[in-house]
Nucleic acid binder design. Structure first.
Lengths: 289, 289
DNA sequence: ACCAGGAAAGAAATTTCCTGGT
């Protein structure tokens, strides 16, 4: 497995060199662009806007910041290096906090922390963090981007989460501070929620649409027409109160039924295998042509 | 503000039409590619691989899935619609759970939920969810991608988080189950962590590298050379135990000092203003040329 | 050879392709 970043963790004066390995790999079905007439792959060619769209070779491309309409300053890789201190490149834990303090809105990407030295120190830090149930907060530069970082330990694994900065959080465009809520309806809603409460078991959620998409691909490969999906008829309910009362009835019924099925669901959870999709397509390359 | 998606929330038989507004807007300084010789913007031209790299017009580009090397099936937008049911397009809350059950590794993107009707029902659901401190779990299709969803309410605001599917979580490439941890060192590490524990205040973290990068841009605009960043000399410590003991001393000293500064930090937190960066560059368009 | 990250395009978000690092 390749690593996304090489860096190091500084815990007080303890230094641990580490690599970061991506913890989430999107598994989507991806498409390519084709020329309709020739069914040939579309390729991006880098062209020069002011030179009759002549192709530009990679070695002649520079990175530049536009500070005014049409005005640029060039940045070489060495320029970025100049403004990074050694501390920037390391993950220096600034302080520790508790996981529940961190609002989910801040989470960005997840990585596994893999030590490339200082194994004893790494184990020690993991153990201490997990026993105290604390997460480490740090700041570092990954690539050419400064990110806020949360280090956490669970089941003896150290995870790194990049966090968004506070000024990246947008304001909610909708505010309703004064809406009246009916006491009776609130009690009904709460009863429904309680009926519908069960534990979060991520392995149980399947990507059904993806399965249907794969089936549609099979259908197309066989040269057949796609059929529209079957539709369930939505229940029509006239008022909010009626909808709540009917929902309460239905969820109560379901809840009673569900308690009989608990053992089945549990065993399904355990059976989960971490299989990789084998349908992953090989990407067409330039030299395919 | 534009909305990313139009959809609806189904809570039992209660139907609430909603829009989703992105809650996180990345605020990075981004660069452009220029042709080194002419300082002209680089533009991607879509060309046909098998037709002497002739340019392909957007209207002649189709979306295709490669099922075998060089073999494709075409998908029109109507094909995607065919395999979506009405239920797919809505957010039907499957069940409720508690926030702490959801491991941070699952979080993907955050949106604000903005009702476009059913305001009374929306307020009711928000109120009930917040009072019970429950989050809603659902599945829906956003764009052409099925996502797992968590709805949550905080401070009378409803947030939607997309979650990764279980099969998108990669395995940790590093496993160390048997590393011995020294009792004495563990106690030291824990004492250091406790010394370094303070609450998570996201507004206090500034993107310093970005500030330095903006300064570097100013320097370049003035035509001056960039100076390398000042370096702090790292403390050299010989053994893990020495590093821990010295760290404990330093953090204890800092902690005693910090308790005097608490009031200052608190007031800084309150002063936080949600200003937007004004340095956001205008993107060069094709017609700039 | 792979794949995560970056830039451009354009549905103004996300998707698509390219590239450098491993």
């Amino acid at each position: 497995m390749g690593y996304s970043y090489k860096t190091s963790i500084n815990f007080g004066l303890v230094y641990i060199p580490v690599n970061l390995a991506v913890a989430v790999r999107e598994n989507n079905i991806s498409f390519n662009m084709l020329d309709k007439k020739t069914m040939s792959r579309v390729q991006y060619k880098k062209t020069c806007v002011d030179c009759n769209n002549k192709e530009v070779e990679p070695k002649n491309i520079v990175k530049a910041y536009q500070y005014e309409e049409g005005k640029y300053v060039i940045f070489e890789e060495s320029d970025f290096e100049k403004i990074k201190t050694n501390k920037d490149k390391n993950i220096t834990i600034e302080h520790f906090a508790t996981l529940s303090e961190i609002d989910p809105i801040f989470y960005d990407k997840s990585y596994y922390v893999v030590p490339s030295g200082g194994y004893k120190a790494f184990s020690l830090l993991k153990r201490a963090m997990e026993e105290l149930n604390k997460v480490g907060i740090a700041k570092t530069i990954l690539g050419n981007k400064e990110v806020l970082i949360m280090l956490r330990v669970k089941n003896n694994q150290m995870y790194l989460n990049t966090l968004h900065f506070f000024d990246e959080i947008a304001l909610n465009p909708y505010q309703d501070n004064d809406t009246e809520v009916d006491k009776n309806e609130l009690e009904l809603a709460k009863a429904i929620i309680n009926n519908m409460t069960s534990s979060f078991k991520p392995a149980l959620y399947q990507n059904e649409y993806k399965e249907r998409l794969l089936q549609a691909i099979e259908t197309k490969i066989r040269g057949q027409e796609l059929l529209p999906a079957r539709e369930e008829q939505p229940n029509q309910v006239s008022s909010l109160l009626d909808a709540l009362q009917e929902s309460l009835k239905q969820t109560t019924k379901k809840k009673l039924k569900a308690s009989d099925d608990v053992i089945d669901i549990e065993s399904k959870e355990v059976k989960r295998t971490r299989k990789r999709t084998t349908t992953k397509k090989t990407k067409a390359k330039k030299n395919d042509a």
